[in-house]
Nucleic acid binder design. Structure first.
Lengths: 255, 255
DNA sequence: TCAGGCACGTTTGTATACAATAACCCGATC
DNA sequence: GATCGGGTTATTGTATACAAACGTGCCTGA
């Protein structure tokens, strides 16, 4: 191998919203390829609403902004299309997918069905010790939040995390990779993600937390049908809550 | 792992389209881009079993075989990864996804949930005239097949088509694009596709057809819960049937 | 004035060249 | 004899050049 020739490799860590972490510059080398970094960066940008719905995502423009070539951009857009965040028309390119309120709500029907099955499978298969421990810890954390009787400042985010931990534990216990893949798609829909639920109504939060307790109980008792039923109702209530929010606060849905 | 020679490429997929239809030369102009043609060709090849599970899909090799460059190949492989047909490891490339019997069966749990919701939504929303007509035509076709009292030669394929038409009509009536996307993924799993169900057991075929009648009836009566219940049981019976086949005929599942 | 068409520019689609990473082979060393 | 290390090779990752397709605006002609 000739090690003599100078190689101009003028790639700089670009900044889009942030820099696409490439190389092993910052901490973890978790991200292996540029295409993945770009995918993550774009996903984040879209989820954060940095692009308008229906806004065109021109390859060259994005490439320029992220200081990479069009190749990883294309790969990322392709992937995001599969994730449902982006739309694609042959010879016309990519654009941010617009989801009207109806479609958004419709996602919850899918989520309800999938998470319901996950709960049932978790109950039928049984949770291992680690998953049970994770659930118990999450539930206790939730208990502490609810016990305060009102919503303090940081509690919303913490309850979101608690919520995520529980659903994730159920999903893992279900041991069905396809289920996981599909639910990930649901979570990636910007607004339908639980992370975006405004846990501002304390009463509703408490009810939601109670759902969690009952779902965990059903799973531990190996009552599959009940677990499924509870989980579906749980997600359904999120759907209703979300619909209220959408219909109430008009411009909140810019997706 | 490598038994013998360092580069084992002794096994060539017997036949493979020598070249994908480039441009709009052949027949339909339905396919617009090469990448899509390649995706379709590869999907078909994988579904037909022209590649072994876990077999590596090397970009250059495929490019050579299909007479295109690596670029559309990469796009196709990326897409097929999202579809669940292909696995990807960074810096290692793509390979045909191996699904063990368990995972295969697990797909039906997902399908059951999704199609169940589709049936419920179809019932709640109501079917338009066109969809109803499609269903009626399909059901009558099925009636004719069942009326014969036994399975004639071409009937298996025709019943598969009837089956597909019905499920598709329900899906369209559900009017939930995400549901459609996800079910498409399920259908693409090689063996789990209904098209691969061996409709050899006439009694089972008749029962399946009867399910179809009842599901359609429930949808027409706008009985959402019943439609969902019936559809889930319908898919569940396919799952059981499939499991029997897998466990019975050993080598049928080379997955 | 308006319709049609042609030319141009922009943007995507594909091919190819090059860089980087991971597997492999072989030899050296403990 | 087994393991570690360097060098080699095969294969993927990225960049870039070029071709094709679509949209646009101007020009022409009736």
């Amino acid at each position: 191998m000739n090690t003599g020739s100078p190689r101009p490799s003028p790639r700089q860590p670009a900044s889009f919203p942030r820099a696409v972490a490439k190389g092993r510059a910052a901490g973890k080398a978790a991200v292996v390829t540029l295409a993945q970094s770009v995918t993550d960066a774009l996903r984040k940008a879209i989820m954060e609403g940095q692009f308008q719905p229906d806004e065109r995502l021109q390859e060259e423009l994005l490439a320029e902004r992220l200081n990479v070539s069009r190749t990883p951009i294309r790969a990322a857009l392709h992937g995001l299309t599969a994730e449902g965040l982006v739309e694609y028309v042959p010879n016309r390119g990519y654009s941010v997918r617009r989801l009207d309120a109806g479609q958004l709500i419709a996602v919850f029907d899918v989520r309800g069905a999938l998470e319901g099955v996950a709960a049932r499978l978790a109950a039928e298969r049984g949770m291992d010790e680690a998953a049970q421990a994770q659930c118990r810890a999450a539930l206790e954390e939730g208990d502490r939040i609810v016990a305060k009787g009102r919503l303090l400042s940081g509690d919303r985010n913490r309850f979101s995390e608690v919520n995520a931990l529980l659903h994730e534990a159920v999903l893992r216990a279900a041991d069905n990779s396809m289920l996981g893949d599909m639910l990930r798609v649901c979570y990636n829909i910007p607004i339908s993600s639980d992370r975006n639920v405004l846990w501002r109504d304390f009463g509703w939060l408490r009810r939601s937390h109670d759902d969690h307790h009952r779902i965990f109980d059903a799973i531990c008792r190996r009552e599959g049908a009940r677990a499924e039923q509870l989980m579906r109702e749980h997600v359904h209530s999120v759907k209703l809550h979300m619909r209220e929010q959408i219909e109430g606060t008009a411009p909140a849905v810019r997706a």
